[in-house]
């Protein structure tokens, strides 16, 4: 998946969505209901109906993408329409609301919809931008490959440290045994592991190498090895970060879609229940 979703067939769905929005804006501009614009005028009901229909259709994408049997319409086309009609909802639903917001189920549905749309927009950005960044960051390797190199370096470091003092050996052992890549949600998304034992070990070696033991070949070797390992760790963490960014929005997009559907049901039910 890449930019092709955005530009699909010469921005066909961008055009469709823009036309829909322009039509809604023009109607809204000339629409003058008694009181103030709201979801209960003929235009309000119209925009609300169109908005709800679009939301249901957009949800159908979740079903469609799980069908591996190719349909009449390519998945790519579905996604392109999903993106642009989803973005069009921002305008259609806002006009439907008549810019009236409050602490109620109606605004709740609107807010949930905006969360879904904005997370989707981030997802689009991630899918367009991050694959290239991942490729660049990996420099032709895989994450497994990087991990293997790190493990090899650990072994090498330990061998060197074996002959050295306990302080050095302990630091190297900790670097090998306690260094982590990623971890929890924050660690994965931030691409940082604070208090990394490898970095601590590297700093110690650098300090020692600059001190009275500057001629110790073992320490100098460890500086090299640990610096290399630190580089690889950075690369691995960036890879995990980019992957997490590409995935994380979906953990908002999907659950909030279901919350939105629930709020939408309550919204439609309540306005007609208390008509």
């Amino acid at each position: 998946m890449n930019e092709s979703v955005v530009v699909y067939r010469g921005f066909r769905y961008l055009k469709v969505a823009t036309l829909l929005c322009l039509l809604a804006i023009v109607l809204y501009a000339f629409h003058t209901p008694i009181g103030q614009p709201n979801g209960g005028s003929w235009l309000g009901y119209g925009l609300g109906g169109i908005g709800a229909a679009i939301i249901l259709w957009l949800m159908w994408f979740g079903v469609r993408k799980r069908r591996y049997k190719p349909g009449k319409v390519k998945l790519e086309e579905w996604l392109s329409a999903h993106v642009y009609l989803g973005l069009a909802l921002i305008i259609i639903a806002t006009l439907h609301s008549g810019f009236q917001f409050g602490w109620n189920v109606h605004t709740l549905a609107y807010v949930l919809m905006m969360v879904v749309i904005l997370s989707g927009a981030f997802g689009l950005y991630a899918y367009v931008r991050y694959p290239r960044l991942m490729t660049e960051n990996r420099r032709g390797q895989t994450l497994d490959g990087i991990f293997t190199q790190i493990a090899d370096l650990d072994r090498e470091c330990r061998d060197v440290a074996m002959r050295l003092g306990d302080e050095v050996n302990d630091a190297v052992l900790a670097a090998a045994q306690r260094t982590r890549v990623g971890g929890g949600l924050v660690r994965q998304l931030s691409g940082r592991n604070p208090n990394c034992p490898t970095l601590a070990a590297l700093k110690l070696m650098q300090k020692l190498a600059a001190g009275p033991r500057h001629d110790d070949a073992g320490v100098r070797k460890l500086v090299q090895l640990l610096a290399k390992k630190d580089d690889l760790l950075g690369q691995a963490r960036r890879d995990v970060q980019l992957l997490a960014m590409m995935q994380v929005w979906l953990f908002i997009h999907v659950p909030f879609t279901f919350a939105l559907i629930a709020a939408l049901v309550a919204h439609v039910f309540s306005v007609f229940f208390y008509w």
Binding site: F147, Q177, R178, T179, R180, V181, G182, G183, Q188, V240
Partner: peptide, 8 residues
């Protein structure tokens, strides 16, 4: 062990 410790 590295893989086990890490969450990717």
């Amino acid at each position: 062990q590295l893989k086990k410790r890490s969450g990717t």
